[in-house]
Design a protein around this nucleic acid. Sequence first.
DNA 1: CCTTACTTGCTGGCGACAAGCAAGTTATAA
DNA 2: TTATAACTTGCTTGTCGCCAGCAAGTAAGG
Lengths: 192, 192
Amino acid sequence: MSEQMMTEAAVSLLVERGIAGTTLAGIGERSGYSRGLVTHRFGSKAGLLAHVHDSIAAEWLRRVQAVVGRATGVAALQRVTDALYKFIVDEPKGLRAMYLLRYASIDPSAEYRANVAKLNKAHVRALTRWVEEGQAHGEIAAEVDAGLAAELFASVVDGLLYRWLVNPDIPVKELHGLMRAHIARALRAAQA
Amino acid sequence: MSEQMMTEAAVSLLVERGIAGTTLAGIGERSGYSRGLVTHRFGSKAGLLAHVHDSIAAEWLRRVQAVVGRATGVAALQRVTDALYKFIVDEPKGLRAMYLLRYASIDPSAEYRANVAKLNKAHVRALTRWVEEGQAHGEIAAEVDAGLAAELFASVVDGLLYRWLVNPDIPVKELHGLMRAHIARALRAAQA
DNA sequence: CCTTACTTGCTGGCGACAAGCAAGTTATAA
DNA sequence: TTATAACTTGCTTGTCGCCAGCAAGTAAGG
């Protein structure tokens, strides 16, 4: 179906030329259709971008769920970082497109912004729950503020991806290892 | 002078309407000039945005240097976070505009991108040096990979600011405290 | 003939560029 | 010293090309 084709064309164009450099006509034509079909289907450029973002985000969610499984506490957070590392290696283009869109949504003119804010909050909720479960099992120190730790964890992930987008040569693998170590140490220890 | 006026108009428009929503004509007129002056002065929209970014970045650099002074090691990194927190409180508009531009520069179509990459590398170099100095003084564990720790620190800062941009209600103050604590614990301890 | 899938024609807005104008400022020469 | 000519600076206006968005239209299958 044309939606799928156009979404794929959009991803490749986004990675090649960025958001501003990606035109609706370009997407239509690269996917073998006319210049007008994208608008017709997705209503607007923002609508298309939201669709692209959400479809990759769904794939990311699937991966995280598969890797984390029923784990909780430190193991759950570590596995999230594992999934992240794997995603970087397996599908750099998709991840790049998703974060390109996600960072662009900071822009107040992006209607899409509220969606991303909601998504971020959902992520933090899930992370918070894992931390709390770790505390319930006695694995994670009780003094840890679960919500705060979750927010910081999410920040590290987002920040790392931003830096990777700007400079793909950063030592992603080593940073992944360092994160894993930090998670364990920070959560098991006491906290201010 | 008109440059200063237009830069200020640009910052306020960027915060209000974002990059896409900010037009050159709008900047020119808000600053009391004609629609064409911005292009005439800065060559292009990208040129203007680079100028806006760099002038705020210079202010940020001044602040960091003032706060860090001759400190090194853990104290230096903690004071960077202090400066960051203070900047968020003192000049949220400027910081917001700068990071809006910095994140937008991920976009491959932004010529500006190489500049930001260079800037990021310079930051990491400074951070690395502070960590190494801390190691020389025996304050920071020798096993710590200074460059890696610096990259992770920079990621946390960037990630936090991203999250703050999307959702200004996150507990910035508490996160600042948590970061301070993490820095001390992570660097003084051994590391994988 | 009616729906579904797609195309084509058109418009307004914006960035970019080029030409131009007005108010200085410096140079020149009687 | 002053008149005027040559040039600069700071800014404006006219115009072009590109793109998103819209509306009308076409083609093909049931």
